[in-house]
Computed example of a mutant assay.
Amino acid sequence: MADTLTETTVQQYDQLAARYEQLRRIHPDERTADQNTQLQDLNQKLAAILATPPAGYSLPKVAADLIDHAKVHGWLAQAQWTYPGFTGEPHVKVKVGRRLTEDERPLYRGTHWLFTLTWHSRDCSPGKVRKFGSGLAATPDNPALHDGPSIKAIRAVIADNPAPDAAPLALF
Rank of each mutant, 00 (worst) to 15 (best):
G74K: 06
T118E: 11
Y13I: 10
C124D: 12
A2N: 10
I49W: 07
K71D: 11
P60S: 06
I154L: 01
L50R: 13
V96I: 15
V92W: 00
L169Y: 02
Q40R: 15
Q35H: 06
I49E: 02
A170V: 15
Q35N: 07
G74E: 12
A159Y: 06
V94G: 05
I154E: 02
T4R: 10
H69G: 07
K152W: 07
Q11H: 11
E102R: 14
V62N: 03
A159W: 00
Q38S: 12
L5G: 00
A144T: 09
K128F: 01
R31V: 00
T37F: 09
A17P: 00
A137D: 07
F172K: 04
Y57G: 08
Y13K: 06
L39Q: 02
I154Y: 00
A64R: 09
E30K: 11
I49H: 00
A18Y: 01
D103N: 08
D65H: 05
L117S: 10
L117G: 00
T4Y: 04
R99L: 13
V10I: 14
L117R: 14
P126M: 06
S134G: 13
P90E: 02
A51N: 07
D3H: 04
W119Q: 03
V94H: 02
K131G: 08
L136I: 10
R25D: 11
R109S: 10
Y108F: 15
A55F: 03
